[in-house]
């Protein structure tokens, strides 16, 4: 599949499906907030849809609780290719404050392994940290996903100056 072509095709009309895997709702109401007048993501042609089958991009929130895991996998399976994911919030990205508890699986990287086992391929993931993510951060994340904005963060490793 030509990812670049697919990205270009949805550039002005992005249908998003919001998938909550057990988040605290803060990111979720910020997703909603992004749709309301102050941020108005319909400027970019972004529209929330009610089914992953209709979705170009899935907005993924939450640390993936054990109870929600099978449902999450199934929802992602239902999504058409290319599967584009915007993982929102510290819970989704790194498991958040509950990254190691018995009731969660610990964020998206763990889910990715399970998806692979289940044969569900994901074509592109963009991680958006924040606790909660600001509506502007969500917009910026979508722009990065579509290649309309440059990624600003880079891996940094600095040696502390010796004495």
């Amino acid at each position: 599949m030509d990812l670049a072509k697919a990205l270009k095709a949805i550039r002005r009309s992005i249908w998003v499906y919001h998938l909550n895997s057990g988040s605290c709702n803060a990111c979720d109401i910020e997703v909603l907030d992004a749709l309301t007048p102050y941020f108005d993501v319909e400027r970019f042609g972004i529209k929330l849809v009610g089914s992953p089958r209709h979705a170009d991009v899935v907005l993924f929130t939450g640390p993936v609780t054990r109870e929600s895991l099978p449902k999450v996998v199934r929802a992602l399976k239902a999504m058409p290719r290319p599967r584009l994911l915007l993982v929102l919030g510290s819970c989704g990205v790194g498991g958040g404050i509950w990254w190691d508890t018995y009731a969660t699986i610990g964020g998206f990287s763990k889910l990715e392994e399970i998806l692979r086992e289940q044969g569900v391929e994901v074509d592109r993931v963009v991680y958006v940290p924040g606790c909660p993510v600001r509506p502007e951060a969500i917009i910026y994340g979508i722009l990065v996903l579509l290649g309309l904005a440059e990624q600003k963060v880079r891996e940094v490793e600095v040696h502390a100056p010796g004495g």
């Binding site: 990205v93 790194g94 990287s109 592109r124 993931v125 963009v126 991680y127 958006v128 940290p129 924040g130 600001r134 502007e136 951060a137 910026y140 994340g141 990065v144 996903l145 990624q151 600003k152 963060v153 880079r154 891996e155 940094v156 490793e157 600095v158 040696h159 502390a160 010796g162």
Partner: peptide, 20 residues
């Protein structure tokens, strides 16, 4: 005040200071 932290991989979300 940085919030534009979106990244295409998890690696870029890490920063390290290495001490002797």
């Amino acid at each position: 005040k940085k919030f534009e932290l979106a990244s295409k991989n998890l690696r870029d979300l890490r920063s390290r200071v290495v001490h002797e």
